[in-house]
């Protein structure tokens, strides 16, 4: 393949990665930003979304599109409920202590992973894409569904942005993020905000997983990579910046794709990894973050 088309393909692939990553990372960013905790189990919520998507879509017979629609509505709801349960029974009890939270969410990670293995099994299982067409560019063929994923993710990101910046609930959340004590003083139910934010964070991850599962099969160990990547994206983008998170996701997604054009794959991964480290060394507050107060 010629260089130009190859680069185009790499960029397309990077955009798909970025689209899903942005959603997942946004979830982590909300939790991180508002509650000031590192949720190590975030990747497991992603995995649960994918596994539930398989489960819901395999329960619905008929057109794969119906199964997929059921999955994309139901899977995030169930995951959100599970997240609230975790938040109420564990995180609240340890008072969101940053260090205890790491241990607690590692515990949650183990539990969710084991339950998935026990009830879902060790196999990677595919979910059929709701739409199935191949886009034929002059130089190569490309999965149409992947383009749908980019579009769907963009819509969801816009919706989240709207909720956060243009609604009363978004205001409450931002107030809590800015200063939870003052927010409390102004009669904001910080406690309930935390539960909701934790649920929304998990639901965003689950939604991203439902979108990706027709491309990437559900597997009980699939939560590791999204966790690490979204973690990186959140920090690179700058804490608490939606815009930064999205931009960082695009940079990371596309650089991973494009660097692989020029180097052997493993070397490309190594270089992409070092590049991320370098960005942070030069700009420790992230690309769009403000210097921490």
């Amino acid at each position: 393949m010629d260089f130009g088309p190859y680069l185009f393909l790499a960029v397309l692939e990077g955009t798909v990665t970025a689209a899903v990553l942005a959603l997942t990372a946004l979830g982590l960013s909300l939790v991180f930003g508002v509650m000031r905790i590192v949720n190590v189990a975030h990747g497991e919520f992603f995995m649960l979304g994918a596994v539930l998507a398989w489960w819901f879509s395999s329960m619905v017979s008929g057109s794969p599109a119906i199964g997929f629609l059921v999955a994309i509505v139901m899977a995030p709801l169930v995951v959100g409920a599970i997240a609230v349960l975790c938040e109420r029974t564990v995180l609240k009890r340890i008072n969101y202590d940053p260090e205890a939270t790491i241990v607690a969410t590692i515990g949650i990670l183990y539990i969710i992973q084991q339950l998935a293995l026990t009830f879902y099994g060790a196999d990677a299982r595919p979910v059929q894409a709701p739409v199935n067409f191949r886009v034929v560019f002059p130089w190569f063929g490309y999965s149409g569904y992947k383009l749908v994923v980019i579009a769907a993710s963009a819509v969801l990101l816009l919706a989240t942005w709207f909720v956060l910046t243009r609604t009363r609930f978004g205001l409450i959340m931002r107030a809590t993020q800015f200063d939870s004590e003052t927010a409390q003083a102004f009669a904001i139910p910080v406690d309930r905000v935390y539960a909701v934010v934790f649920a929304i964070g998990a639901m965003l991850a689950a939604t991203a997983a439902v979108l990706i599962v027709p491309i990437q099969q559900a597997h009980y160990l699939m939560g590791g990579d999204p966790l690490l990547l979204s973690f990186i994206v959140v920090i690179i983008g700058g804490l608490g910046s939606i815009f930064g998170t999205v931009v960082a996701a695009i940079i990371i997604g596309i650089s991973d794709g494009v660097i692989s054009v020029f180097f052997t794959p493993t070397l490309a991964k190594i270089l992409a990894t070092l590049l991320v480290a370098l960005v942070l060394v030069l700009r420790p507050q992230g690309l769009f973050g403000k210097t921490p107060r």
Partner: peptide, 10 residues
């Protein structure tokens, strides 16, 4: 056993 370990951690 991962379940047990997870619960124990919590």
């Amino acid at each position: 056993y991962m379940l047990v370990v997870g619960v124990a951690l919590l």
